[in-house]
Amino acid sequence: MKTLFAICVALFLSLGAVVQAQETSNPASDAWEVQKLSGVAHVSVAGTEPVAVQSGQVLLAGQTLTTGPRTRLMLSNGKQHIQVSSNTTLSLPPEAETKPDMTVVRQTRGTITLSIDKQQSPHFKVETPYLVAVVKGTEFTVSLDDEWAKVRVHEGVVEVKNQVEDEAFDVKAGEAVTMNVASLSSGMAVLSDKGLFKGGNDTSQAGSARLTFSARGEDSPEEMETVRQRQDRERWRASPIGRVGLTISDGLAIVVGYLGEIINTSIGWVTGLVIAAMSPFIDLNAQFAGINYWVRVALVGVVAGLILGLGSLYLVFFRRR
């Protein structure tokens, strides 16, 4: 009886090990189920006519999904989910072009938001003609149109690789990177069958393909800085001189803040005196903001006059000596 029990326990443990090994080697199958479909979408395979997508339908490797205007749907693959927006095109590469430990989605247009389960090693990748996003587990959005290619990270860390220039770096939660696609010449925007650039990384005839970094994930390109500027700034912050500079700048910011409060309080006090002095003759309470403005102008004039006067006296005194 003990021998039979030991054999049963061994078989159970072996079965559990096999299942765990299978889950580790193949974290997600190549099939994606369409859920929460709202609008019109089509799926196609190379050389075939597009077919309308139905909720509950399963997308397989080698198929391409295209959503129409005012269309949203969810793709689910186990613990992984992709929210697909309208006017978006993405495809699942053929099995021959994928590895068992890496799930790949190729996007050539539109916007997708992904929620990927966390694992110890990178296991999910989004490929676009311009950027590649590799993750271990996170939530992020990839947007692509005729002007911009962008990756915004909502949770976790995403490694973003530039398909045109030789650069790659990590993007953290709350950050975003953007490429100005419109600046690239038409010759560079040639896609292969995989949706990637044909031919190496020669950008001599193209516009700037460097990624720009946004510290808070803004959409405004004017508020972005280059990746190298960000890296230089972070290295400076980590250096001893940078730490001293930050301490001094923080102290100056506190002093300037207090001075600003004192000045604002003083101006408000002067404005109140003016209104109190004039109140027997005219009601100025409703014009507090206007009077406050002119008090500020007068104060600036007085300060400027003092600076000019002191400067004049210094020059006269200096010349006499």
Rank of each mutant, 00 (worst) to 15 (best):
E223S: 00
K194H: 12
T203G: 01
D193G: 08
M224A: 03
T203K: 05
N180Y: 07
V190W: 00
K198C: 08
N201P: 01
L196I: 09
M224G: 01
A182S: 13
L184G: 08
E218S: 15
E222H: 10
S183Q: 14
A215T: 11
T178P: 01
S192A: 15
S192F: 00
V181E: 05
E222V: 13
R210L: 09
D202V: 04
R216L: 06
S204W: 04
A176I: 09
A176R: 03
E222P: 09
S183L: 10
A182Q: 12
G187M: 11
K198D: 14
E218F: 04
A215G: 11
S208I: 15
K198W: 10
S220F: 06
K194S: 15
F197E: 00
S214L: 04
S214G: 06
S214P: 07
L211M: 15
V181D: 02
G207E: 01
L196W: 07
S183F: 00
V190C: 05
G187H: 05
N180K: 08
K194F: 15
G207I: 07
V177L: 03
L184Q: 01
L211F: 00
A206W: 12
T203N: 10
Q205Y: 15
L191M: 10
S204Y: 07
N180R: 13
D219H: 08
T203R: 08
S186R: 13
Q205H: 14
S204I: 11
G207N: 04
R216M: 06
S183T: 10
S185F: 02
T226N: 01
A206V: 13
T212W: 14
A189H: 12
T203C: 11
S214H: 11
S208G: 15
E225M: 15
V181L: 04
E218Y: 04
V181Y: 00
M188P: 02
T212D: 01
N201C: 11
S185Y: 02
G217P: 02
S208H: 07
R216H: 08
S185T: 10
S186T: 12
S214K: 09
G207K: 01
S185D: 13
S208C: 08
S185A: 11
S204G: 06
D193F: 03
G217V: 01
F197N: 02
Q205R: 07
E218R: 14
L191D: 07
V190Q: 14
D202E: 04
P221L: 11
S183M: 08
D193I: 02
S186M: 13
G207D: 07
L191P: 01
R210M: 12
M179K: 15
T212N: 09
V181C: 02
S186I: 05
A182M: 06
A176Q: 11
T178G: 08
A189K: 14
Q205V: 08
K194P: 04
E223A: 03
V227I: 13
A206T: 08
S208P: 02
A176T: 09
V227W: 14
G207H: 02
A176V: 06
S183I: 05
M224R: 08
S220H: 07
G200R: 05
E223L: 12
G195A: 06
G187L: 15
K198G: 06
F213D: 05
